[in-house]
């Protein structure tokens, strides 16, 4: 970290220091004013919105200026008895499990491979990480093209002798969720890769060398040495995946609109549909509050687990 500027700038400080009393010199200046802008911006906006959501969630509210009518917990009981809500929860769980497994294992494998002697490593790195950077909204027409009935995926399948697997991926209820999961995996492996690449770089080469002298094979080194040392990264990714699964919106909305017949619907698309398309604001707010409870519950659970370890 560059520290060169400090000394010169400090001594240039606003000339003669007023004599200070010993005790006061130890007292730090008050800082409330310094945290206030950030506090008002984040806590203010967010807590206000949560409070407002809470209020809306007890109303039958169709938007506009007419206001809502109080209906108590009806929105919540409606949501909790609605198969669409449980469908979205189920998709979220499936999404989380599949994305986490593939993202983490592929991230580890790519990181280990690129820590080995591979030519043009930078090119591979860029190709793997690029999907993380490009906006889902910008890439989604391309993904729709890839999975189209006459698209490249089916073309590839037909040319490697798997015609039987060729199908209309986006339009059928059995595969729409898989497409959303696949695209998310495509765009998130690079992120896991970067984290694993960084944490593997911190393993002492001597330890690996010692294991090799003891006769450990490549896979053995990976399994017993490398993977255990990246446990922290795996855990961090799992936590981040819980949150990103719960707040998922862009890909399901852009690829399938949650369909067909809600087979790739998530809480994000569900809330958006209720709030924006149907202007059923009270119900959307109740869903949002349930989502909030799940997100907070998940982060408390993971924090507790983190503390145990």
């Amino acid at each position: 970290m560059p520290t060169k500027t400090t000394d010169s700038t400090i001594t240039r400080g606003r000339a003669p220091a007023p004599p200070k009393r010993q005790g006061k010199a130890r007292l730090k200046p008050a800082g409330l004013g310094w945290i206030l802008p950030a506090f008002v911006l984040s806590v203010g906006v967010i807590y206000f919105c949560i409070g407002y959501s809470g209020l809306l969630s007890t109303q039958e509210n169709r938007g506009g200026t007419s206001g809502g009518t109080f209906i108590g917990a009806d929105n919540y009981t409606n949501a909790l008895t609605n198969p669409l809500f449980w469908g979205a929860i189920k998709h979220t769980v499936v999404f989380f499990v599949l994305v986490s497994i593939v993202q983490i294992s592929m991230g580890i494998v790519f990181a280990a491979m690129l820590h080995s002697k591979v030519r043009l490593a930078v090119v591979y790195k860029v190709i793997i990480f690029l999907p993380v950077v490009i906006a889902p909204a910008i890439m989604s027409p391309v993904h729709r093209r890839v999975f189209a009935t006459d698209g490249p995926l089916n073309w590839i399948l037909e040319h490697i002798g798997l015609e039987a697997l060729s199908q209309s991926w986006l339009a059928q209820t059995s595969t729409s969720l898989l497409v959303v999961i696949g695209v998310q995996i495509w765009s998130s492996i690079g992120f896991a890769f970067i984290l694993f690449y960084a944490s593997m770089g911190q393993i002492e080469p001597e330890i690996i060398e010692a294991a090799r002298i003891d006769g450990a094979s490549n896979l053995r080194v990976l399994w017993s040495l490398v993977i255990p040392s990246t446990r922290g990264t795996i855990f961090a990714l799992l936590v981040l995946n819980v949150i990103s699964s719960l707040k998922l919106f862009d890909y399901p909305y852009l690829l399938t609109r949650g369909g067909p017949v809600y087979t790739s619907d998530f809480l994000g698309t569900y809330i958006h549909r209720e709030a924006v398309a149907l202007t059923n604001l009270g119900y959307a707010a109740a869903l949002a509050m349930l989502l909030l409870v799940l997100a907070i519950g998940a982060s408390i659970l993971t924090n507790l687990r983190a503390r145990e370890r």
Partner: peptide, 10 residues
């Protein structure tokens, strides 16, 4: 950990 959809309705 707040998802942005939570802000949508308000």
């Amino acid at each position: 950990t707040l998802p942005e959809v939570v802000l949508l309705a308000p």
